[in-house]
Design a protein around this nucleic acid. Structure first.
Length: 475
RNA sequence: GCUCCCAUCGUCUAGAGGCCCAGGACACAGCCCUCUCAAGGCUGGUACGAGGGUUCGAAUCCCUCUGGGAGCGCCA
C-alpha cells in the first residue's frame, strides 16, 4: 500500500500574498494534483499573530483566483482539522505536557536580555550563537523557586548532543546536521503560545502531510522539526527546499520590487494562467515548451526538475505569458475589460476589433478612448502626416463618408486622389485615431461611430487647409 | 564569526565526461509579411565567474578563490 501524497500550503495571515509564497503554494498544489493526492490549506495564526479574518479571506480569495484549490482548509474542515492554528492550542498544550513529562523539553527562565548577551558574547569570541543550556539542568527545586518568583518561562526542546540528524531533501539531496549545532530551542513562548517550529511540525504530522516544499530559509529548521516529530512519535514529512525568488537586483523579492504582491498583479489585470506559466518555470523547468494549459502544468511537474539556484522574477517574462494568456482568453473575459468603457452593447464588436492590441485592461481603456472618446488636436508627426496628405485628400474622405460610404468605398474614393498603400493609410489612420499604430483600420472603422468619423475627417481637412494654425488655438 | 547552499546568454532555463566551438524561451537587432502596431516567419549577437587539477577528452568530477544566497530568535 503506497502512502497517499498530501501536501499543504501553510501561510501566516500577515501581509499580502507574495509571489514567492504563491510559487511555494503552486508547487505543492502541482505535486498533489500530479500525484492524485490532497492539497491542504492551513492558516498559521498562532496566538501571537492574531488571526485577521479579512487577511485570511483575502488569502483564500487569491488562491482561489489562481485556481489553486484545496481539499481541506479553514472553510472546508474535515477530521484532520481544524485548519487554523489558533483553534489548535489545546493540542499543542497536551503535546507540551507530554514532552515536558518525558524530559524531552524543559522550562527555561532566561530572559531575552540574558540570551541576547550570551549570543553577543559567543559571536564576539568567534563562536556560533547557541543556547548555553543554563536552564537545561535545573533541579525540580530550582525550577520551583524560579516559578515562585513569578519568572516567566519558555519551554525548550532538549537536543541531545552527539547525534547526527540526516534526511534526504527532495530538492537538495542528502542532508546531515550535527545535533550540537542545533542547541536547545524554544517550542513554547513565555506567553504560552506555540512557536512556529513546533506547531508547524506537529500539525504536519497530525494532518498526515507527506511532502513539504518550502523556501530554503527553512533548511535549518528541518532537523529540529524532525526531532520534534520523533519525540511526538510521528513520521515527519519528506521535505524539499526551494531556492528563493529574487528581484531584478538579485536581492530577495520584496514589496519594493514592483508588484511582487499577487493582489496588485491581479488588479492590473494579469491573468492567473499567465502567472502560473511564469511561476511554474521559476526554479523548475518543464520539458514541454511554450504555453502550458492547466492540465499540462500539472502533468509536466517533476520534483526532479526543481532547481537549486535562486531565480529572478522578470516583468518582461510575465508580460510575455500575459500576451499568451490574453491570446487564448475567451472573448467574454476581454469584454469584461471593455465594459463601462465602451457604449453598452458594443463590447463584443469592440473586442473583436482591438483584441490583438490588448494585453491588459488599461489597453482596453486606451483603445476605447481612441474609438469613442474625445481626442486632442493633432501634434508632432501625426500632425505632419495629416498636413502632408493635403486638404483634397480629406475632402474626398469627407465627401465619401457624407455619402454613406463604408470602409471599401472610402478607400476607393481615396485611391482616386492618387494615393495608395502607406501613403493612403497612414494619413487616414492619423486623422481617425491620432496614432501611428493600432488595430486594422477596417475593423476600427466598423465600430467607430459615423459622427466621430466625420468629425475627425473634417478636423483633419481643416488642419490640412490651415497648417499654420497652431495646434490647440481656436479658429 | 560559524554552518549550509548556489554559480550556463541581460533574464528563465536545457545540459547528469565525448551527441556542446553549448540547445530552447523571453528580451534585443535586422529582414520578410503588412496601412501601422501586435501576431507570425526567417536571421543575428550575447553565456559555461576565475585559477588550478583529474582525464585521451570537462559546462559536466575534485580543490582554491571570487561572487551571490540562506541560517545561526520567545519571526514565521
Amino acid at each position: 500500500m503506497s502512502t497517499p501524497v498530501i501536501t499543504r500550503f501553510a501561510p501566516s495571515p500577515t501581509g499580502a500574498l507574495h509571489l514567492g509564497n504563491v510559487r511555494t503554494a503552486l508547487f505543492n498544489w502541482l505535486y498533489a494534483r500530479r500525484e492524485g493526492g490532497r492539497f491542504l490549506l492551513r492558516i498559521e495564526d498562532t496566538d501571537r499573530v492574531r488571526s485577521d479574518e479579512a487577511e485570511v479571506l483575502a488569502l483564500m480569495g487569491e488562491l482561489a483566483w489562481l485556481g489553486l484549490d484545496w481539499d481541506a482548509g479553514p472553510d472546508r474542515e474535515d477530521a484532520a482539522g481544524p485548519y487554523r492554528q489558533s483553534a489548535r492550542t489545546e493540542r499543542y498544550a497536551r503535546a507540551f505536557d507530554r514532552l515536558e513529562a518525558a524530559g524531552a523539553a524543559y522550562p527555561c527562565y532566561c530572559t531575552p536580555l540574558e540570551l541576547e548577551v550570551a549570543r553577543r558574547t559567543q559571536l564576539a569570541s568567534g563562536r556560533p550563537p547557541r543556547y548555553p543550556g543554563t536552564c537545561a539542568t535545573l533541579s525540580a527545586a530550582e525550577r520551583a523557586a524560579r516559578a515562585a518568583e513569578g519568572r516567566p518561562a519558555t519551554l525548550r526542546f532538549r537536543v541531545a548532543p552527539g547525534e547526527a540528524i540526516a534526511y534526504d531533501d527532495l530538492v537538495r539531496g542528502p542532508q546531515r546536521f550535527q545535533s550540537e549545532d542545533l542547541g536547545d530551542f524554544v517550542i513554547r513562548r513565555a506567553d504560552g503560545s506555540a512557536a512556529f517550529l513546533f506547531s508547524n511540525a506537529l500539525d504536519d504530522a497530525a494532518m498526515g502531510v507527506s511532502h513539504v516544499l518550502r523556501g530554503e530559509d527553512h533548511v535549518a529548521n528541518t532537523p529540529r522539526q524532525r526531532l520534534i516529530a520523533r519525540a511526538l512519535g510521528a513520521e515527519p514529512p519528506r521535505y524539499g527546499h526551494l531556492p528563493l525568488l529574487v528581484g531584478p537586483g538579485g536581492a530577495p523579492l520584496s514589496k519594493r520590487d514592483g508588484s511582487a504582491a499577487v493582489a496588485e498583479l491581479r488588479a492590473e489585470g494579469y491573468l492567473p494562467d499567465a502567472l502560473l506559466n511564469l511561476l511554474g518555470r521559476l526554479g523548475h523547468s518543464y520539458a514541454e515548451e511554450g504555453w502550458l494549459a492547466r492540465e499540462a502544468l500539472v502533468r509536466g511537474f517533476e520534483l526532479g526538475a526543481l532547481g537549486r539556484a535562486p531565480a529572478h522574477f522578470d516583468r518582461a517574462q510575465l508580460r510575455h505569458w500575459q500576451k499568451e494568456a490574453v491570446h487564448r482568453a475567451p472573448a467574454a473575459l476581454l469584454e469584461g475589460w471593455a465594459r463601462g468603457r465602451v457604449p453598452p452593447g458594443q463590447e463584443a464588436a469592440f473586442v473583436a476589433a482591438v483584441r490583438a492590441n490588448l494585453e491588459l485592461p488599461v489597453d482596453a481603456a486606451t483603445w476605447a478612448h481612441v474609438v469613442y472618446g474625445e481626442l486632442p488636436c493633432a501634434a508632432g508627426e501625426i500632425r505632419d502626416s495629416i498636413i502632408g496628405a493635403g486638404a483634397p485628400f480629406y475632402d474626398a474622405a469627407c465627401a465619401a463618408v457624407a455619402a454613406g460610404a463604408g470602409y471599401r468605398e472610402l478607400v476607393a474614393a481615396l485611391k482616386a486622389t492618387g494615393r495608395a498603400g502607406a501613403a493612403l493609410f497612414k494619413p487616414l489612420r492619423a486623422a481617425l485615431t491620432q496614432r501611428a499604430d493600432g488595430p486594422e483600420l477596417a475593423a476600427l472603422l466598423e465600430i467607430m461611430p459615423t459622427s466621430i468619423v466625420r468629425a475627425r475627417l473634417e478636423a483633419a481637412r481643416d488642419l490640412a487647409m490651415h497648417p499654420d494654425t497652431r495646434p490647440g488655438s481656436a479658429l
